[in-house]
């Protein structure tokens, strides 16, 4: 699998895929996409990088253990439901803030935070499985 072409292309491919996954994540509320799909794309990006260049560089690149990323995502998602409690609404009622940024109207919301959590959960869990499987005894 570790051909020169693959190894040369893989880092760029991974970077592009991760970027694309974030794009898919953020557009999800209005266009096809979302945290789950984005997470899957990012996870496959990491898997490709792992197959091409070995698991250790991937682990170094993502700094945290993939399961920690996953657990943090779950934490973030659970947290995203809390702000509504402060406003005496039931848990997970969505909250929106809109503000102009230069000429664009930017919408921030708790569902977006929730979706980012979903993204992290999926990236972490799938990448953790894929990387653990890619790791051979010889590594």
């Amino acid at each position: 699998m570790r051909t020169i072409i693959f190894r040369t292309v893989a880092p760029y491919l991974t970077a592009l895929m991760v970027l694309f996954s974030i794009f898919v994540l953020l557009r999800g509320h209005n266009e096809p996409g979302g945290g789950f799909i984005g997470g899957l794309i990012a996870a496959s990006a990491l898997a490709i990088y792992g197959i091409a260049c070995g698991v250790a560089p991937v682990r170094r690149a993502i700094v945290f253990h993939p399961m920690s990323i996953s657990a943090f995502g779950l934490f973030l998602s659970a947290l995203a439901g809390l702000p509504s409690l402060l406003l005496h609404q039931s848990y997970m009622t969505s909250q929106w803030i809109s503000f102009p940024f230069f000429d664009v109207e930017v919408d921030l919301s708790t569902p977006m935070v929730f979706d980012i959590g979903v993204y992290l959960v999926v990236v972490g869990a799938i990448a953790s499985i894929a990387l653990a499987l890619e790791e051979r005894e010889s590594d």
Binding site: P32, G33, P111, V118
Partner: peptide, 17 residues
């Protein structure tokens, strides 16, 4: 829910729990 993508709105908002 301020979203045009119904599938995603269901996932993160209507059926968020």
């Amino acid at each position: 829910a301020h979203g045009r993508n119904i599938v995603n709105v269901i996932i993160v908002d209507f059926r968020g729990f």
